[in-house]
Amino acid sequence: MSDKKAIIKSENFCFYYGSKIGVKNISMEIYPKSVTAIIGPSGCGKSTFLRSINRINDLIANIKTKGVLLVKGHNVYDKNTNLVNLRQQVGMVFQKPNPFPKSIFDNVAYGPRLQGVKKRSYLQQIVEEKLKAAALWGEVKDELNKSALALSGGQQQRLCIARALATNPDILLMDEPCSALDPIATGKIEDLIDKLQTDYTIVIVTHNMQQAARVSERTAFFCLGELIEYDSTVKIFRNPAKKQTEDYVTGRFG
C-alpha cells in the first residue's frame, strides 16, 4: 500500500479558530483510488481537518493554519492556490443533504455550467451519467425538472453526490454523509461509495464504526484535535496499537 504515491499529505498541520485549536500536528498520507475513514469522538476535529482539504473553512472569520497540507503535491494553504481548481478537483458531500432550491437537472449541471459547458445536449449527457453513477437515475429520470427539495433525504444526498461528481473531481470528501439518513438509504450510499472508489479518492468522516469497517481501506482515529492512530482498517479494528483507539472502537470510550 505505502508504495503508492499519496494524493493528500499533511505534515504537522494545525488549524485554529481564532485562538481556539481545531486540529493540531496532523501528519498523515491519503492514497489515491481508495476509501479512507476518519473516526473519533464528537468535537475532535474530524470535520475541521476534512474541511481544510478543500479550504471550505475559509468562510469562517479569523482562521489560522500551521504546517503543510498537500493535495497532489501542492500546499493548499499557499497564497497562490487556485481555489476554483482546488475545489473542482476536491469535491465535497456534506453531513446534511444541501441541494440548491433548483431543479434536479440544474443541481447536477451547476458544476459543469461553472466550467463553461453550455450545450444542452452535452449537459444532459453529463447529468445522466452522473445520476447513474450516484445510483439515482432510475428514480428521477422522468422528473429532472422537479425541485430537488421535493426528493427524500436519501435521494437528496445521492443527488449531492452526483452534483459533486459532475465537476469531475479526483477526491471526494464526505462529512458524515449518512448521519441524516435511515438504514436503507445508508445502505445505498455505502454501496455507492464502494462502487466509486475505483475512480475516486474518497475521504469519509463517520461516527458509525461498522460503516468505517465496511467501506474503508484505511482508518484514522482522531481525539481532541490530534491524530492518535492511522493504519489499515483491519488493523485499527482488530488490533489497534493504542489503548485509546481500542477503547473507542470497542465502545468503551468515556
Partner: peptide, 22 residues
C-alpha cells in the same frame, strides 16, 4: 457518450497553483 465526455480535458489536469495572470 462516455467517449465524448472523456475527450473533454479533465479538470484534474489543471494546476492547483495560480498562474501570475490569474
Amino acid at each position: 457518450n462516455n467517449a465524448q465526455i472523456n475527450k473533454e480535458p479533465k479538470t484534474s489536469s489543471r494546476s492547483l497553483a495560480l498562474t501570475a495572470l490569474e
